[in-house]
Nucleic acid binder design. Structure first.
Lengths: 233, 233
DNA sequence: CCGACTTTTCGAACATGTTCCGAAAGTAGC
DNA sequence: GCTACTTTCGGAACATGTTCGAAAAGTCGG
């Protein structure tokens, strides 16, 4: 109805109505929207408006919003600066995993798609080299293929969990709160039933807020490799 | 408009319109709905219909759907059968974490709230003893309070990640699929850029489908405790 | 019995992701 | 130019979680 002219003349041999919109254009608009208004404002309708097309038109270029985010992830991964990898293969695993982690922290919108089915299979080569780096490190530590995949998956689970918990942190519920659901009270623990929790008490929020990702990662990797190497390794 | 009489005569001294609905009633309806139609069918409107009240009425008894699920989680936790804990404190950690894990696998709807802010603080004592068990095991392994919380959090991240990835598994996207987004292809990896991935190739889905939770958990716990105990421990 | 106050109920409305389907705008063959 | 055929476009509609505001149904003090 209001659509302008087709952006470019139809390439020869192309039948059908010429597209007004391209996927690249959509990604560009999405990036712009995120940079300008924040990723929470990235909705299908806003994005369509930003580009100047109808909302449902986008679904001819992307499968779903999740797919859009996946596309975006691969897009950002391309610009991602690769960390320098140390010589020690175990340390390579840690550095690579940390690089993935830090990237995901920097792209909070990615949290919504970290768990999509077959995630690894949906990654571009611009992101896959990180997976490859993890596998390579594991193999260089003496793992066979199967063990290397196990290392990757364990590290991935740990990382996904940390990222997702982190992403939902700071959403304090309720304010002055209805009478409805009790407030989280760390001081009211029953010392006879949960003595350790009671002992920690109000210190919990502070302890839980600490960034211990790398620490836990190192422990995990050490534990994983210890089961692969001969005890003297 | 259509509401029946108040379920019970107003308890003395209670002012205001007598409630038609109770939170217990809501939880009951939710459990019934989940058992009968599956947890995907648990929506606010359906639940309200199941109980026989208006949809928005529920919001006077629960804060949000997430809160409802949290309430449900605590509710289910009450019926939860406690595992027998072994003597070895390290093994107690593993068994307790596995108990949490298995419970969450059995309650797939819980996946939606695992990452809510301050999760632990929103748990009942019926669920908290599991957290306590983890902390107790860690302390019995020689951790101080701070280290015990670190052990808990690391195990929690790993568990949450595994559960969430698992919960989203098997959502094959697209069927015969539009031209829009490429299919996940594990055979098409570029062997020169991602040699290890290419070597694994089509074996990936099979390897990724294996249940390695406990294996990874053991590795994680070993790695965590190794940093606490003196090297000879 | 009446007005003030309190609590609960619920219909209307909103923003969201997404599907459906008819209209628009081209090419290909005649 | 006309009729297929193909592809893209986009408005209407749906289900979802949630907010708002007004009406309902009680208690309490007089």
């Amino acid at each position: 109805m209001m659509g302008g002219m087709p952006r470019s003349i139809a390439p020869k041999g192309r039948t059908g109505r010429p597209p007004l919109t391209s996927r690249a254009q959509i990604l560009e608009g999405a990036r712009r929207l995120i940079d300008r208004d924040g990723w929470e404002k990235l909705t299908i309708r806003r994005l369509a408006a930003e580009i100047g097309v109808g909302a449902t038109t986008l679904y001819h270029h992307i499968r779903s919003k999740d797919d859009l985010l996946l596309l975006l992830l691969n897009d950002y991964a391309e610009r991602f600066e690769r960390p320098e990898l140390p010589d020690d293969p175990r340390e390579r695993i840690v550095v690579t995993a940390t690089a993935i982690h830090d990237a995901l922290v920097a792209w909070p919108w990615a949290a919504e798609i970290l768990t999509v089915d077959g995630f690894v299979g949906l990654l571009d080569e611009s992101a896959l080299w990180l997976v490859e780096g993890l596998l390579a490190g594991a193999r260089d530590c003496g793992c066979d293929e199967e063990q290397a995949v196990h290392v990757f998956r364990s590290v991935w689970y740990y990382t996904v969990g940390e990222i997702l918990v982190r992403a939902h942190s700071g959403h304090r519920r309720g304010g002055e709160g209805a009478v409805v659901t009790r407030e989280p009270s760390f001081s009211g623990f029953d010392a006879s039933r949960v003595p350790h929790l009671a002992a920690i008490g109000e210190r919990w929020p502070e302890l839980a807020a600490r960034d211990t990702y790398v620490e836990g990662l190192r422990a995990l990797v050490d534990g994983l490799l210890a089961r692969t190497l001969p005890p003297g390794g």
